[in-house]
Computed example of a mutant assay.
Amino acid sequence: MKDRDNTLSRRRFLKFGSYGLLAVPVAGLGWTTTAKAMERLSEDDPAAQALNYVHDASAAAGHPAYEEGQTCLNCLLYTDASAQDWGPCSVFPGKLVSANGWCTAWVAR
């Protein structure tokens, strides 16, 4: 009788172990969608105002630190260069900035 209990335990262990292995890839699907849920940075945001962030770099032409051609898309801090419209920036975590935007934290890529 003990042999039979051990066999059932082994079977049960293998059965639940395989369920656990199947659940791991499914659990990862929820993690990949969080980046898409980020909201766009507003020009009225206090952090954006502190760094003179604008959605359109041409609006920063009067700022002394701005040089022609500087945009978020060609900034080192713009962390996803493949994002052509809005993308993440390490200066504004959890927010998306305009690829055509500019702020005083701009660093050449």
Rank of each mutant, 00 (worst) to 15 (best):
D3M: 13
D3W: 15
R4G: 00
R4Y: 12
N6Q: 09
R10A: 15
R11H: 11
R12L: 06
R12T: 03
R12F: 10
F13M: 05
F13V: 00
K15M: 03
K15P: 00
G17R: 06
S18W: 11
S18R: 11
S18Y: 09
Y19Q: 04
Y19I: 06
G20L: 15
L21D: 10
L22R: 10
V24L: 15
V26A: 12
V26H: 06
V26E: 01
A27E: 01
A27Y: 09
A27G: 09
L29E: 08
L29Q: 13
G30T: 09
T32H: 09
T32D: 03
T33R: 14
T34K: 14
T34G: 07
T34C: 07
K36F: 07
K36I: 00
A37L: 10
A37H: 09
M38A: 05
E39C: 02
R40A: 05
E43G: 05
D44M: 08
D44I: 00
D45I: 10
P46W: 09
P46A: 10
A47W: 04
A47C: 01
A47F: 05
A47E: 07
Q49C: 04
Q49W: 06
A50Q: 14
L51C: 08
L51P: 01
N52Y: 11
Y53H: 05
H55K: 14
H55G: 07
H55I: 05
H55Y: 10
A57G: 04
A57V: 02
A57P: 01
S58Q: 06
A60L: 03
G62T: 07
H63P: 01
Y66T: 02
Y66G: 01
Y66Q: 03
Y66A: 03
E67W: 02
G69D: 07
Q70C: 10
Q70T: 03
Q70A: 09
C72G: 13
N74S: 13
N74R: 15
N74K: 15
C75M: 08
C75I: 04
L76P: 00
L77D: 04
L77C: 06
L77H: 14
Y78Q: 08
Y78S: 06
D80F: 15
D80C: 09
D80H: 15
A83E: 12
W86I: 06
G87D: 05
G87S: 12
P88L: 02
P88I: 00
P88G: 07
C89W: 02
C89I: 03
S90V: 11
S90A: 15
S90P: 00
F92C: 10
P93K: 13
G94W: 06
K95W: 15
K95S: 13
L96P: 01
V97W: 02
V97F: 11
S98R: 07
A99I: 01
N100E: 08
W102V: 02
T104Q: 13
A105Y: 13
A105N: 13
A105F: 12
V107T: 11
V107H: 12
